[in-house]
């Protein structure tokens, strides 16, 4: 077994152990961190590995969240089918948005994705008879079960989050070492060169957006499932910015950067909440400082300085 896989399995095992070691409050925090880290990992595949800076991933997160929550709330769908609906919904949205947005590049791509996400957010508000808008709705606890486990309990929530986090991490780890992932990195590094080696850059980017969007949708669905709530604020602009923040902080283009960045920021938000309600202020300060002083993030810098093998 190689170092990268060993590291991933080690992190997963440590997270499993953490539930029994940490006080309940921190275990609860960690469950949320793992779910949001799934989101950040999805974002990282597009941004960190392919070089596609989207400002609209909340659209995919929201598609997954509403895909699951609406089918549970209004049609009484059980967990697994609802989760499947969420994945299909976010994949479809990502496929359509990707096909359109990828006709643009750079700054235009950022603005187009931002606008599609804004349209998605407004759509959630427009159908507030179903979504209850910003206020959102609480999912019936009776439906939040899987294979006999109560996903609203602390343990059920933690281990469901860990399972999905572990699957996503191993998937991302496999993707970035497979020819598909190598090609994405090639596109990020030098797109014209990748084209002139015979890579179908447009199609690869499109696949990257679809996989990235689907993982983000999985995160949205998981969030609704485990925390029992869906609301339009999860589809709004700040939710497109947060994964960018987590990934930049942890290290774009590293497999574990999203987890590190998410954990760091969630605790920073948590600590600052005793001082102020304006937690996005912290996000703003960290974003500015990162772009100025640590553009490669924590693990990116670590990889550059000390551990070149870091996945």
């Amino acid at each position: 077994m190689d170092r990268a896989l060993a590291l991933h399995l080690g992190v997963i095992a440590a997270l499993g152990l953490a539930y029994f070691v940490l006080p309940a409050y921190h275990a609860g925090n960690l469950a949320r961190i793992m779910v949001l880290a799934i989101y950040a990992m999805g974002f990282n595949l597009a941004f960190g590995y392919t070089g596609l800076l989207s400002l609209g991933h909340a659209l995919f997160f929201g598609a997954g969240m509403y895909g699951l929550a609406l089918s549970m709330q209004h049609f009484g769908a059980p967990t697994l089918p609802a989760l499947l609906i969420a994945l299909v919904a976010s994949a479809l949205v990502a496929a359509v948005v990707g096909a359109l947005a990828l006709r643009t590049k750079g700054v235009a791509f950022m603005i187009v994705t931002l606008m599609f996400a804004q349209a998605g957010y407004l759509t959630a508000l427009y159908f507030s008879a179903w979504t209850r808008g910003e206020e959102g709705f609480v999912l019936p606890q009776a439906l939040r079960r899987f294979a006999g486990f109560d996903l609203s309990s602390a343990a059920g929530r933690y281990f469901a989050a860990l399972l999905l986090f572990a699957l996503t991490l191993l998937l991302i780890g496999a993707i970035v070492r497979a020819p598909f992932g190598r090609a994405l990195i090639a596109i990020r590094e030098n797109e014209p060169r990748a084209t002139m080696l015979g890579y179908d850059v447009q199609r690869l980017k499109w696949f990257a957006i679809i996989v990235s969007g689907t993982i983000s949708g999985l995160a949205g669905a998981t969030y609704a499932l485990l925390f029992g709530y869906a609301g339009a604020s999860f589809a709004a602009v700040p939710y497109s910015i947060l994964p960018l923040l987590y990934v930049l902080l942890g290290g774009a283009g590293t497999t574990l950067g999203p987890l590190v960045g998410t954990a760091f920021m969630i605790y920073l938000f948590d600590l600052s909440s005793s001082l102020t309600d304006a937690y996005m202020l912290i996000a703003g300060v960290v974003l500015v400082l990162l772009t100025m002083f640590l553009p490669q993030g924590m693990l990116g810098t670590l990889r550059k300085r000390a551990l070149p093998w870091l996945p």
Partner: peptide
């Protein structure tokens, strides 16, 4: 196969 007039390799890899 085509090589670029202005060197174009994947400098980060």
């Amino acid at each position: 196969a085509y090589t670029f007039q202005i060197t174009s390799v994947f400098t980060g890899l």
